[in-house]
């Protein structure tokens, strides 16, 4: 399992987001997509980030995934501040520490399923002798062993997403970032995908941060952060609650959020 880097002797969280702000636009029209967001994610957690469209959740994910840079504030992963890194360091950080699952799977259409998963290892220059078995094992665990020889265009949406999940976790990253992983799936495939993520979290020990607007999807996680107008609005933990109850709690918060939004309007 991942070692938690120690800062001054105290165990540091895996991910620490500290007061980040993101401002878009020029002097004349400024949009504050993030207005000071802070939270921590501990190793082994499965955190969902929820919020209505335009709330800043995708901006937050982009900042954490180093695709975008916050205007101010810091993001620490394993105690290392990623906001000050150079482009090359960031690329290295992404391939060493992060795994990605996108809404549109983002598999490379010219590569087979096997090669797509293996890519996460080859770009880290993992020893090529071990790659084959690692990919096979991961694909078997995620139920996509039978599509390894297929191209993405020959797979179903659910298969593509699970191949993408395999690609995200096969390199054993510190943190897996998932952006609406069930957004493009039908409900059955979505359920399978979410169970897969849950399994990755519970049995493989993966730390997952998932952005979603789907309460059902969020109910698979341990903790849900609600974000609205660029700030953290609420946070609920699942604890020992059964998933159905947790789902109910989430719906309440969402309803409240929506209600307040209507009031404001």
């Amino acid at each position: 399992m991942k070692e938690v880097a120690s800062v001054c002797g105290a165990p540091a969280p895996l991910l620490s987001v500290r007061a980040i702000e993101k401002v878009f636009g020029s002097r004349d029209s400024v949009t504050r997509a993030l207005a000071g967001v802070s939270f921590n994610v501990e190793t082994g957690e499965f955190v969902s980030i929820m919020g209505p469209s335009g709330s800043g959740k995708t901006t937050l994910l982009n900042c954490v995934s180093t695709i975008d840079k916050p205007t101010s504030g810091h993001i620490l992963v394993n105690g290392k501040d990623i906001t000050g890194m150079s482009k090359r360091q960031l690329a290295r950080f992404r391939r060493e520490e992060l795994g990605f699952i996108f809404q549109d799977s983002n598999l490379l259409d010219t590569l087979t399923g096997f090669e797509n998963i293996a890519l996460a290892l080859t770009i880290k220059n993992a020893p090529s002798g071990t790659i084959g078995s690692r990919v096979q094992n991961m694909a078997a665990a995620l139920g996509v062993a039978d599509v390894l020889k297929k191209y993405p265009s020959q797979m179903s949406g659910g298969q593509k997403q699970r191949v993408a999940a395999a690609r995200a976790i096969v390199g054993d990253p510190s943190l897996i970032l998932a952006d609406e992983p069930t957004g493009a799936l039908d409900s059955r495939s979505a359920a399978v995908m979410l169970e897969t993520l849950e399994m990755m979290n519970q049995q493989m020990g993966a730390t997952i941060m998932m952005v979603t607007h789907d309460s059902y999807a969020a109910s698979f996680s341990n903790r849900v952060l609600f974000i609205k107008d660029g700030t953290l609005f609420n946070e609920i933990r699942r604890g020992d609650m059964p998933r159905e109850d947790f789902f109910g709690r989430i719906l309440e918060v969402v309803a409240f959020l929506g209600g307040e939004a209507r009031h404001a309007a």
Binding site: I67, A91, F93, R95, F100, F102, L108, L119, R167
Partner: peptide, 12 residues
């Protein structure tokens, strides 16, 4: 494809 590769951590 290049965008995807860049996200996966391939540098320039």
């Amino acid at each position: 494809r290049y965008r995807a590769l860049s996200r996966l951590g391939c540098d320039a």
